[in-house]
Write a protein that binds this DNA or RNA. Structure first.
Lengths: 138, 138
DNA sequence: TAATTCATGCAATGGAAGTGCATTAATTGA
DNA sequence: TCAATTAATGCACTTCCATTGCATGAATTA
């Protein structure tokens, strides 16, 4: 059994051809992808299947959702040290307004945010927009 | 001439009945509203008009857009001290997962965010999710 | 192997954002 | 004040994304 398959099984995700493909696709990409990106890459497969596969990955916590403010939900594989379910370990995301790519800045933790009295903070979403390292060269 | 009308004029926004109504509606609400909320409040008016009114308000910088991660764009009147066009003065937003309301925490500035070498930060969006002061009482 | 559970594919829906065009209202200036 | 112009409103569409119901096919388990 290959690495990906073992990985999926370890997360109690039923192994199918489609899921292996999508999981590999996500790990090859080093940025967050939209559902439409996946559809484009697998144009033979049905949109619904891709959609539900991602949803399954999300539930099983091998993928996390990113709202980068473009209006389109993006998804990315959780890093080994990504505890996206925990509030204490939240990294930020960077959205490049030039090339449109969204990247997880896993090493950059979100500073502690103070909220007014009576408010209970449970989750923090932080997106920085600007020019990414590749685009800033030109 | 009333306060709202003078206010609109001072921002070189043409004064119409509709715009006065919407501006008042926004200032009465002390939370960010979705376009659908406005539609609901003014069901006699056309969706497009409401949409374009908000867009005009945005352009003239009396309203700022909030992406609270619900997938629906919210809008709120800028406070007198709200410089939503400047990157240096960005407040954060709080989204209550219980009552669904989104509130500007105008006093709470976003801490300086460090980005990796080569990245240029131009904008920051920070949304804290949790339970708001009203809901946390119960 | 039969029964069951789950994945996939197709079709359809609903919500939100946005655009083109005709009409109406407001403003300008003669 | 009236005509000309400019901008706001309303209607009809369109597009895009997210989501669901149902039928079928594959995989797992008893």
């Amino acid at each position: 059994m290959q690495g990906v398959e073992a990985f999926l099984e370890s997360k109690s995700i039923r192994v199918t051809a489609m899921r292996i493909l999508i999981c590999n696709f996500l790990s090859d990409k080093h940025e967050a992808v939209a559902l439409s990106d996946i559809e484009h890459a697998f144009d033979k497969a049905d949109r619904t299947t891709l959609y539900r596969t991602i949803k399954t990955f999300e539930e099983k916590e091998i993928v996390h959702q990113i709202d980068d403010g473009t209006g389109v939900t993006k998804y990315a594989l959780c890093e080994p040290n990504c505890h996206c379910d925990l509030d204490t370990d939240l990294h930020l995301h960077f959205h490049c307004t030039q090339c449109g790519s969204t990247i997880c800045l896993t090493d950059h933790k979100i500073p502690k945010i103070k909220v007014p009295k009576g408010f209970i903070a449970e989750h923090v979403n932080l997106v920085v927009k600007g020019i990414c390292d590749k685009c800033s060269i030109n």
